[in-house]
């Protein structure tokens, strides 16, 4: 545990000196929290939405109880469209950190002395993974908390806020978020075993954001409705994908392969 701690602290003291990583970790959550808050602010001051429920996708009516006004429904709908953007945070931050932390070691040629210490591969991988996952989860959860607090001040109907804290978003933030962060780290480790430039690693690792964007545009187009079933199925699928990615990343992160083939 002590060695895992050392790796985490080492990673943080090193990677956060990299501007790209710092930018991704600090500004991305702020921007992605500000967008839904901005929408709430704008919609709460816009005109009359009383007749809008008929224009919303039919499947969405399940999130729009009878006691909601047209304006409340519209707010819930439009904010839900952007809430999925929160899920970019647990993907982008680990991808940025781990692609730098692993390829950075390659570039520095510091992996060999590191592997020469009595650290096990598991300790090293867990340390590196946690150093990328923890900031991502802190940023996601902090962003979500800021969003809820901000909404509290801007939304007149507290039931609407309750809608943002319903089961599907709690599953998304507290179950899918960590699973996504694990996917991002595992994917970055796999990418890192094939490239030598941290910038290339980071750019390639960012491909992992594409499924979230697909869901975002899918729901915008009314093809996907983010209900509890969708979230649970997504969590299950992500769990399976993670198992595969973790297996692959561990398989590729063999000491001998790293020492002799990672050029």
């Amino acid at each position: 545990m002590n060695k895992i701690n050392t790796i985490i602290r080492k990673e943080w003291s090193e990677v956060f000196k990299n501007r790209m990583v710092l930018f991704t970790t600090a500004f991305l959550p702020l921007i992605l929290t500000a967008i839904p808050l901005g929408i709430i602010y704008a919609t709460s001051r816009s005109g009359d939405f009383s007749g809008i429920t008929g224009d919303l996708p039919q499947e969405f009516n399940a999130f729009c109880p009878e006691n909601f006004s047209g304006g409340d429904c519209f707010q819930v709908f439009i904010v839900s469209q952007f809430m999925i953007m929160f899920m970019i945070i647990p993907l982008a931050i680990p991808a940025a950190i781990s692609s730098y932390s692993i390829v950075g070691e390659k570039v520095n040629r510091s992996l060999e002395p590191l592997l020469a210490t009595p650290i096990t591969t598991t300790e090293l991988l867990v340390g590196k993974s946690l150093s990328a996952i923890i900031p991502a989860l802190i940023a996601t959860w902090a962003g979500f908390t800021i969003f809820i607090i901000g909404s509290w001040f801007m939304i007149a109907n507290p039931v609407v806020i309750g809608n943002f804290l319903d089961t599907r978003w709690l599953i998304a933030i507290f179950i899918i978020g960590p699973l996504m962060a694990l996917s991002a780290v595992s994917f970055s480790i796999i990418v890192s075993s094939r490239v030598n430039d941290p910038r290339v690693a980071e750019q390639v690792s960012m491909i992992i954001i594409l499924p979230v964007l697909a869901v975002f545009f899918g729901q915008m187009a009314g093809i996907i409705i983010l209900n509890v079933t969708f979230m649970l199925v997504s969590a299950l699928l992500l769990g399976l994908v993670d198992a595969g990615l973790v297996y692959l990343s561990i398989h590729l992160f063999q000491r001998e392969t790293i020492i002799t083939r990672w050029k």
Binding site: N2, E112, T117
Partner: peptide
């Protein structure tokens, strides 16, 4: 690995960290 010391072909230090911090990390490991 616990009982040997290795000087690799290239020093492979963490360039962004101080000399002291570099050694502290390895001392812990």
């Amino acid at each position: 690995r616990r009982s040997v010391g290795l000087l690799t072909e290239t020093p492979g230090m963490y360039d962004n960290l101080s000399a002291e911090r570099n050694l502290e990390i390895y001392a812990s490991l």
